[in-house]
Write a protein that binds this DNA or RNA. Sequence first.
DNA 1: GCTATCTTGAACCGATCGTTCCGAGATTTG
DNA 2: CAAATCTCGGAACGATCGGTTCAAGATAGC
Lengths: 217, 217
Amino acid sequence: MGLCGWEGWVSMPDVKHFDADAVLEAVVRIFWRQGVTGTGIQDVVDVTGLSRSSLYATFGGKRRLYLAALERYTEQRSAPSLERLAEDERGLPGVTDFFLSLVDARCSGEHARWGCMISNAHVGAENADADIRAVLERQNDKLRKAMYASLAVARSKGQLNPGVDLEASAEFLALLAHGVNLRSRCGADASELRQGVTAAVAAITAPHGGAGCLRGT
Amino acid sequence: MGLCGWEGWVSMPDVKHFDADAVLEAVVRIFWRQGVTGTGIQDVVDVTGLSRSSLYATFGGKRRLYLAALERYTEQRSAPSLERLAEDERGLPGVTDFFLSLVDARCSGEHARWGCMISNAHVGAENADADIRAVLERQNDKLRKAMYASLAVARSKGQLNPGVDLEASAEFLALLAHGVNLRSRCGADASELRQGVTAAVAAITAPHGGAGCLRGT
DNA sequence: GCTATCTTGAACCGATCGTTCCGAGATTTG
DNA sequence: CAAATCTCGGAACGATCGGTTCAAGATAGC
């Protein structure tokens, strides 16, 4: 913005007096918890500690601010676990781990009952914005593709029930993740959620050593 | 309110000039679409056609108004399909029908892309209210119990995979329904959602005549 | 120190928030 | 018709909304 290199010389009389990254993280947290309509600029001012003018000079406005926070969330919070899932070489155990750690993250620790910022954005008025909706759609694609990758590994390892459709099951597991995120906002028991996701993974598991196929007892 | 029968006589000079039920239905629709934080009293005035004073005299305030709308939604929109599911005697076909008609209702027709008012309320700031949260929890219980009932029928008919846990699977299908509701708000394809829910039901289906269990070809 | 640039807090803008109040008009009873 | 009572439209309440402006303070290079 200031150092656009006009013709050789440029002055830099002052620098930002705050850590823009730390500020954005605080913004993520409040939008994550309260949503965009539930959060006022004053709230953002309060949690970041900087002034309205600095906020607007740096980010531009509520819409741009939320968009920046949403992108940061996807990169820092969502993408890592999705990549871990997509690159997991274990198959179904990777899927199970994904869901169990999801339940943990949603029900305990610092962000308990906050849900997922992506899932939350599906419901709020923010989904009317095309740019925001594009982020949500892109992230949902990532989730589904990560699920598909792990399911494909599971198939190659013979962990999957023969009748399981990879594409459709990836979709259904993605929907399940959204359901977990949503229910966690209302204080759902972690054990209940664990039961649910465990049952879902068990349902697509091949009837080898696990449950199922026991006939006499 | 007016006819509390003091001492034999009571006056009734005027009656309400509007259909309270029709008004509440309009309130349901706007809260359903926009949520509680996204809807102003002015919006309610606009869609109902009556004035602020009548609104407050009849319902009491925004909180009470939303609560009344939420209860009406559960009775008129949610409960019927849940009861149909719970009393369905077909087993898994009943579950499939529930999900397919859910997808239809969420993706087409008058209320397309509105999601479910119950699911939506999980995300909004309204879930901080104890009374509202009680409604959400009660309704989620109904959903899970209805699923359980249909799964129990399915088991008795031998439609279920032997390893399927009724309780846990009811939970997982309830989560799936929330996922469908949530994704529909972002414009998810009906065909995608149908694929997902179909795969979920297929996963718990016994390997009889359907998919699965085909060994040679 | 001087100057240029950026940061920042405070004030202000029009609009909207949820809520309250009152007068005018409608309606039922005697 | 007259009296009593309720309804309801509209104005107005104070507070907060998102957004802008501006002068004073801080910081850099000269």
